[in-house]
Design a protein around this nucleic acid. Structure first.
Length: 442
DNA sequence: GCATGATCATGC
DNA sequence: GCATGATCATGC
């Protein structure tokens, strides 16, 4: 074996050598002319980098790619947000979940962390129609080791995924089950996809992989160091996000909205503000205007709910407006609504008392059960079909499904956008039915 | 009383 | 200026 230009036993040597890719594309740093016709434009850039840049054959064992150094190589795409900031193009897939063997694993020796404890992250700029070997590595490579505080969250996530499989519910797994480590769909989509065996049920389960949520990757990108301190002070209580969050809300249970605002010096006077309770909840969390960073990492969606005295929400729950022109080209699994429903939610529940005064009732984490996501899928598919068929004005209403419906969500009736058949219709979005929310709160 | 249509203040 | 989370308003 010829001498490699780096020391395969040394993570820092591997990192240094990887820096040769900074600002370059793979095709710019290695001569691919002899092999390029055999390369897939969409292939796995990670494998190509290993093979042609590191001259190290991708191994098929379960350990890290650079076994001697304990370093796993990951290439992952970034894109630019509407605000021109680089962000993760998608979740970072770590390794496939083997339902059959995972149930016999133990966290202390688990195969996922054996492989991914230390990762060399290469971020490339994603461009749809550009071959992977022509995509540019826009950041310096990063040698990433999970901070202890994050590992605690990931451990709990891992155990939850494992327990669901032990319960014979692998087919019900959802990204919203967990906080940082997700069980994401992996493999061919659509009806033809093959299902995997699971050990404690005869039902086949979709192939899934352990992955880091896009929101988590984004915090890696956005300069982890600053946030690490904030999070470590929170986690000194040695509890998870869930417990910490619920503990913050607990002191206010039963109090009127006004007195909570008083205590927190939160100005509730002035004009009618339809998001005022959301902002009050943020204040309780100790955040000013934005979600706290640990929520961003876990992709948690906070929603405030007002209940009538009869325990029913006054209103259904809205989601961001969709574009008629976009939705007809989307598949459910990649749709915004599907992504939204796979998230973990934090419900902040208020209720009117007998004197019609609004009081804080409780905070609860929730994620949507599998069968209800399938129902939401039907609503979405029907919506897509109606728009394609030129019936964008006849979208599913509240009576058409127990879970979700479609309703206007614009600034006003003049806030219209185009449909595929050339009309202009008021902007709309998906809503979760208030009756459905009522059931879930129990 | 409920389903559906319409709209508001805010923050970025 | 615009999307968003949320709430108000109307008609049956």
């Amino acid at each position: 074996m010829s001498q490699l230009p780096y020391d395969i036993t040394s993570p820092s040597s591997i990192l240094n050598y990887a820096k040769g890719l900074s600002g370059k594309t793979l095709a710019e740093v290695v001569d691919l002319s002899g092999v390029i016709e055999n390369l897939s434009h969409k292939g796995d850039l990670g494998n190509m980098v290993e093979k042609y840049y590191f001259q190290y054959l991708p191994n098929s064992t379960h350990g890290p790619d650079f076994a001697e150094a304990g370093v796993e190589l990951k290439t992952t795409g970034v894109k630019k947000s509407s605000k021109n900031i680089y962000e993760a193009k998608e979740r970072l897939v770590l390794s496939m979940i083997n339902y059959v063997t995972l149930v016999d694993e133990d966290w202390s020796t688990n195969s996922l962390m054996q492989k991914c404890r230390l990762m060399l992250l290469l971020f490339y700029y994603y461009q749809k129609d550009v071959a992977v070997y022509n995509r540019r590595f826009v950041f310096n490579p990063l040698l990433w080791e999970f901070p202890e505080v994050d590992l605690k969250v990931i451990e709990a996530d891992w155990k939850l995924i494992q327990s669901k499989i032990k319960d014979g519910r692998a087919h019900e797994l959802s990204e919203g089950d967990t906080f940082y480590l997700g069980a994401c769909r992996k493999g061919a989509g659509g009806a033809k996809e093959s299902l995997r065996k699971q050990p404690f049920s005869d039902l086949g389960a979709k192939a899934r992989a352990f992955s880091l949520k896009p929101s988590y990757v984004n915090t890696i990108l956005s300069g982890y160091a600053q946030e690490a301190e904030i999070i470590s002070t929170i986690s000194e209580a040695k509890t998870g996000i869930e417990e910490i969050t619920l503990a913050k809300f607990k002191p206010f249970i039963g109090m009127t909205v006004e007195s909570i605002a008083d205590i927190l010096k939160f100005d509730m006077s002035g004009k009618v503000d339809k998001s005022v309770h959301q902002r009050l909840a943020l204040k309780i969390l100790g955040s000013k205007k934005k979600n706290p960073p640990e929520f961003e990492k876990a992709g948690i969606k906070m929603k405030t709910i007002r209940l009538e005295t009869n325990n029913k929400p006054k209103e259904s729950m809205s989601f961001p407006a969709f574009k008629y022109m976009d939705i007809v080209n989307e598949e459910w699994d990649e749709s915004n609504f599907s992504e939204a429903l796979e998230r973990k939610f934090l419900f902040i529940v208020f209720q009117y008392d007998n004197n019609d005064i609004l009081r804080f009732k409780k905070a609860m984490f929730w994620n949507m059960p599998y069968e209800d996501r399938e129902e939401a899928r039907k609503v979405w598919e029907f919506t897509k079909k109606q728009i394609i068929d030129g019936n964008a004005d006849k979208l599913p209403g509240m009576k058409d499904s127990y879970v979700a419906h479609v309703r206007p969500h614009g600034r006003n009736a003049d806030d219209t956008i185009p449909t595929p058949d050339g009309k202009l219709l008021v902007r709309k979005c998906f809503w979760l039915n208030n009756n459905y929310i009522a059931k879930q709160l129990k």
